[in-house]
Design a binder for these strands. Structure first.
Lengths: 340, 340
DNA sequence: ATCTTTATCGGGAACGATTGCGTTAAAATA
DNA sequence: TATTTTAACGCAATCGTTCCCGATAAAGAT
């Protein structure tokens, strides 16, 4: 079941003109008389002609659509990023193809292979926690597919990258906890292999070291799927709670982990911040209304999406392969509320 | 800047075969010897051949991609719906093209026209609050484009629809308020023209009437952009607060409105539920952790997305235009917490 | 009046994949 | 051995657009 579209041939037949002439009129070429152009445009509008984008893409070797791969759409951070991407893309006549990896390297690869079948002109990706093998990504990149990384980057691939200032964000959050008098600060981190996790870990360590607080390994726990499953956060938190010297503050390394910790504390009836303080990365705009209102590090998600799409546009529309790439680091915002 | 893809011609040239033979091998046709098939498949894998999807789409008149138009991606309800759509789509080899209307009828139409340039095989749409004129939508529908409505439907267009049981949801919420002893129950509704707003209004009225509580017009206020702007919710709430007989409970008609009301009450230091109770439609999974935990009517967003995509699939893959359409009504969940 | 320029249009070959039809040779049958 | 069947492959058209040429006629230049 498909819709029978009107083509350039239909117009040319009706108007007794060649398809070349019709095409030229529609593309506003100079080598055509103003009368025939008007004639064609009027008729085209009348029968509601729409160019077949597949034919155009085939001919021009450009699809005017891009691919976006994130771990999960229904995540406040990523949905805001996508919002930013879409807003710039649609302004520039690009269609956005979304797929989610669900933190699975396998699904990520599948989506990637499908999207890259000469189908997209560029790709914006935030790699999954599982991703270790970036052979395929590297391959299509070397073949010339413009790629921009957002948030979770791969160092080995040289291209534009848009990230938040994770180091500083983590540093600020940890320092804030220290300033508030907390000294046993635990980190509930995302998967250790992730670029953002590494950077945030460094920021956390830097703040502790600066305050001459020793960094203890057992105060750092990991959620290998970024808190996608609550059980993951639960067991991470439980391992912290079983410690002989329990933490007095938690720094959570991702959106889902932050809210997961909050849920854990509520379930276990742990008072925040009296028993345990909590701060974490989050872009959920309800954190302010939580009980207690949550202190968070907020990333400029929408702006990051905008930046990524803008950079991708510049790559897609440049004639030569670009040589110089930039890593745009956007600053985070520390919102201090009642949970710390 | 584009990637130079390897084509069927490259394979045929290298292997001294015709393009037809190569195509048949790749498509696993029967009229080909097992040896040449293996030869071709091996070589194709070696040079990492990927069929050009634009060429395939042009030939088959099927793009294997669908369009999704929602008001805003960064909205918990819609992002969950999209999640459901994407999960089914990717399983069936379909790519999902997303665009957002931002509650603007103009942007919606723009996106629609762009997507329907022989580019998508089907469409899933939740119309914007502004949408009044559905001429274009009706036109492409009559031309044969399979369409499925989710959440916000248009009655005049006969096709599959997936909605939540808005009437019952609103009825249950209102009845719950009544049972709790509230009698001055206000409704902060979405745009009056929206199908969901109408249905929820009816549910609200039904519950009140059943309890012999008169329905008062000044207790029903509207947010014409669904609460997309906080100011909208603010002025709606303010008008309720200026009433000589203020409401003792609020029933909020959409996700953004619900959280907007919550924000309003926090800002105005209105105690919930002592001064004013609050219940509303919401799919944000942090409502449970709010202060106070929010009573909500939750829609099965993910499942609605799945259902919509499944129905769309059936339309796209049926030979003949379908005659019988179903409106799938999925039941909502009433989660009673501390705010009522 | 002849030649050159210019404007305006048509013919037809791409783009990459698919497929009906024709061709060839081998295999099967009479 | 003669004839028919069948397996395996090539040729060429097609999908809808674009664009390089070439053709034509009018306009301008000499």
């Amino acid at each position: 079941m498909k819709l029978s579209a009107v083509t350039i041939k239909d117009i040319s037949r009706e108007l007794n003109l060649s398809t070349s002439t019709v095409s030229r009129a529609l593309r506003d070429s100079h080598e055509i008389s103003i009368e025939t152009k008007q004639l064609i445009l009027d008729y085209a509008r009348k029968i509601n002609y729409k160019p077949n984008r597949n034919a155009q893409s085939l001919k021009e070797k450009k699809s005017h659509s891009i691919g976006v791969i994130v771990s999960e759409i229904a995540n406040s951070f990523f949905s805001q990023v996508i919002n930013g991407i879409e807003s710039i893309a649609s302004k520039n006549g690009y269609t956005v193809n979304i797929s989610q990896s669900m933190e699975s390297a396998e699904r990520e690869l599948m989506n990637l292979e499908y999207l890259t079948s000469s189908f997209i002109d560029g790709l914006i990706i935030s790699v999954s926690t599982e991703t270790k093998n970036h052979l395929y990504l590297k391959e299509v990149h070397e073949k010339g597919l413009p790629i921009v990384f957002v948030d979770r980057v791969i160092d080995e691939i040289e291209t534009h990258k848009v990230i938040a200032d994770n180091f500083k964000g983590a540093y600020k959050a940890t320092k804030h906890l220290i300033n508030k008098g907390y000294s046993k600060i635990a980190l509930v981190s995302n998967h250790a292999g992730l670029s953002i996790a590494k950077e945030r870990l460094e920021g956390y360590k830097a703040a502790l070291s600066e305050a001459k607080i020793p960094v203890k390994d057992n105060m750092i726990v990991f959620c290998d799927h970024g808190g996608m499953l609550y059980s993951e956060v639960e067991s991470a938190m439980n391992s912290l709670m079983r410690l002989r010297t329990k933490p007095d503050a938690i720094f959570a390394g991702s959106d889902k982990i932050t809210t997961g910790c909050m849920r854990f504390m509520k379930n276990k009836k742990i008072r925040v911040p009296e028993d345990l303080a909590l701060i974490g990365f989050s872009n959920n705009d309800l954190t302010e209304l939580l009980n207690p209102p949550l202190s968070v590090i907020k990333q400029p998600a929408f702006e990051m999406g905008e930046a990524a799409m803008t950079l991708l546009l510049s790559m897609m529309e440049s004639k030569r392969p670009q040589q110089k790439f930039e890593t745009r680091i956007q600053s985070t915002e520390l919102l201090i509320r009642k949970s710390t």
